[in-house]
Amino acid sequence: MAVLITGGLGHVGSWVATLLARQGKKVIICDMAAPHVDRMGLDYLEEVRDNVHFEAVDVLDTHTLFETFLRYRDELEGVIHGVSVIAGPSFQTRPFKHLSINAMGTLNVYETCRLLGIDKVVNMSSGAVYGDAAGPQVETMPYKATDLYGATKISGELYGDQYTATYGMDIRQARLFFVYGPGKRPSHMHAVYQAMFGPLEGLRDVHPDNGRDQTTDWTHVEDTARGILALFDADSVPHRHYNISCGVPIAHQDIVDSVTELLGHDSGMRLGPGPFVVRGSPLDITRARTDLGFEPRFTDIREGLEDYHRWLKKNA
């Protein structure tokens, strides 16, 4: 059997694809970056290339999306949808484009699966659906959008719930949170991420305007991918929505200090006052532990940072 992943060359998606391919499954990656995969430096994905097939597909191109899914339909056990513009300072600069990718792109995937009889879908949603509600945040809490990104994730979940209820599909929502780790270079990220994780890559003297006064739930990318696969692999689930994170809050300044301790020198990183984005923390992962047997490995941020540092040095 095969699994199709939209956004399979993204940070989380590439790890989901790698773990599936390591299981011996055929993986179809649908991603606009597919023609450039050889230049992306995803060494872990290179190790399983024999089990991976690439398709350059835009989730807003309904016809190409349908034709691609149709080509693989008879061998698919399901779809994992990961295409998304991430939350950050640039999201609101192109609101219609980003809202369309996140909301309409998700709806296109659901509708294509419905038409082709592909019932099983895991959607990569977000803890942003809780907005700024105080943590620990549990899946039974009401939706609260505090930014445009959060609104797109809420819409994707509502579409999925209604497709499940109306058409008998099996659409599951993995609520992810802040992710770090191998596969993403800090130099390619926003300034707050660079200030926290950038010294692991050799960056120095990054001074973002905000981010210091925030405690949130940072999850190693491999733990995030493992949680998504636990949700996908379950024969049946008693709920539609699952928090997937490490479940441990950590202050942004503590991450800066931990990186300094790991490297043994100060890299001149200074976070400005206030939060980066308005979010509560942490996500409560009791439901994922109970129903899926999910147990994150990197609950100590220092162990995750060491792993991230090893990858960055290896791929310098």
Rank of each mutant, 00 (worst) to 15 (best):
A103Y: 15
H36I: 12
R49Y: 02
Y167T: 01
Q253D: 09
A103I: 15
K153H: 08
L76Q: 03
D31Y: 01
L60G: 11
G82A: 15
G82K: 02
F294E: 06
M1I: 01
R287F: 12
N210I: 06
H98W: 14
Y130S: 01
T290G: 02
V138G: 06
F69I: 10
E47T: 15
E201S: 06
V37F: 15
I244C: 09
T64A: 09
I301P: 03
A230C: 11
T299K: 09
D266Q: 13
A316P: 04
F177R: 09
M32P: 08
P142T: 04
A165L: 14
S126D: 10
D147T: 07
M1R: 01
V129W: 00
T260F: 07
R310D: 11
A56E: 03
L76N: 00
I118T: 03
L271P: 07
G127S: 04
T152I: 13
T219Q: 05
R297H: 11
Y193C: 09
Y143A: 08
T216K: 00
P238I: 13
I255R: 02
P186E: 00
L262V: 05
H53F: 15
L200V: 14
I301K: 09
A134E: 10
F96E: 07
F178S: 09
E111T: 08
H239C: 13
P296T: 04
S84W: 10
I301M: 08
A2H: 03
S267T: 05
L45K: 00
L70E: 02
R94F: 12
D257Q: 11
I250R: 04
D147I: 10
S14A: 15
F96Y: 14
A34F: 04
P208K: 06
V27T: 09
I250V: 06
R289L: 05
G127Y: 06
I244E: 10
W15I: 15
M189Q: 14
N51C: 15
I29C: 07
M1S: 09
V59F: 10
G105A: 15
G280K: 07
V109N: 06
G8Q: 01
G264S: 00
R287P: 01
G264P: 03
R73S: 01
V85D: 13
